[in-house]
Design a protein around this nucleic acid. Sequence first.
DNA 1: CTCTCTAGTTTGTATTGCATAATAGTGAGG
DNA 2: CCTCACTATTATGCAATACAAACTAGAGAG
Lengths: 114, 114
Amino acid sequence: MKLENTKAQMRKGVLELCILSIISEGEIYPTEIIEKLKDSKLIVVQGTLYPLLTRLKNAGLLEYTWKESTQGGPPRKYYQATSLGREFLQGLISTWDQLQHAVNQSTKNLTNNE
Amino acid sequence: MKLENTKAQMRKGVLELCILSIISEGEIYPTEIIEKLKDSKLIVVQGTLYPLLTRLKNAGLLEYTWKESTQGGPPRKYYQATSLGREFLQGLISTWDQLQHAVNQSTKNLTNNE
DNA sequence: CTCTCTAGTTTGTATTGCATAATAGTGAGG
DNA sequence: CCTCACTATTATGCAATACAAACTAGAGAG
């Protein structure tokens, strides 16, 4: 039984929250999202991010526009949150909060509660 | 896209932590675990719990003994954590803490940080 | 012109854990 | 015997990561 494995399982559902949150702050393209996540100690690779973005877009939570790269590379796909996406984000935040409380309650006196 | 679905995904990996934590407090049988989780607003059904317990047992993190029911029903399977299980639990707690911080950092100013 | 490199996007496979549903056995009481 | 409450078991389906591989656009060098 690998701790790494449980870690990956714990990330499920959570990445959606983080990524939707980052995008709701303003339009951004995928490589920048990866950077921002890395800053928060959440390492995500393209193979995970792109299907996730596509999923959210297909659900109407995101939309994208193509823009020229500022550095003379290929064009970039800038994403922004729709109003539905912002709504959904609130739901995710609430869900995350509840989960946090529930877990910390279950493991009371064992975790660093903050 | 269902919020319920994301909620289920968020629980992955987390139930392991909660359940191992509850068991590490002292021996307990499955129905009681379900009750304790319910108290913490974590609803779990048998079909989820039993395979999880079996997994943890097979990994050497738990062990069990059979005891007569105190209420004249079928016998009960009391679980306790092994020392390996207690060790692993510390790793899970640490992992959960890191994830909490990372997520709250990613969603800063949007969540109720506690 | 072609090739190389960097930047950016796409997609398929494998793995794993939860949700759900159904089933089965034990003990006590009628 | 049957019924009920209690307790345990297991299979199937679904979904999201991890990982790897592949592809494309634009710029610069030869």
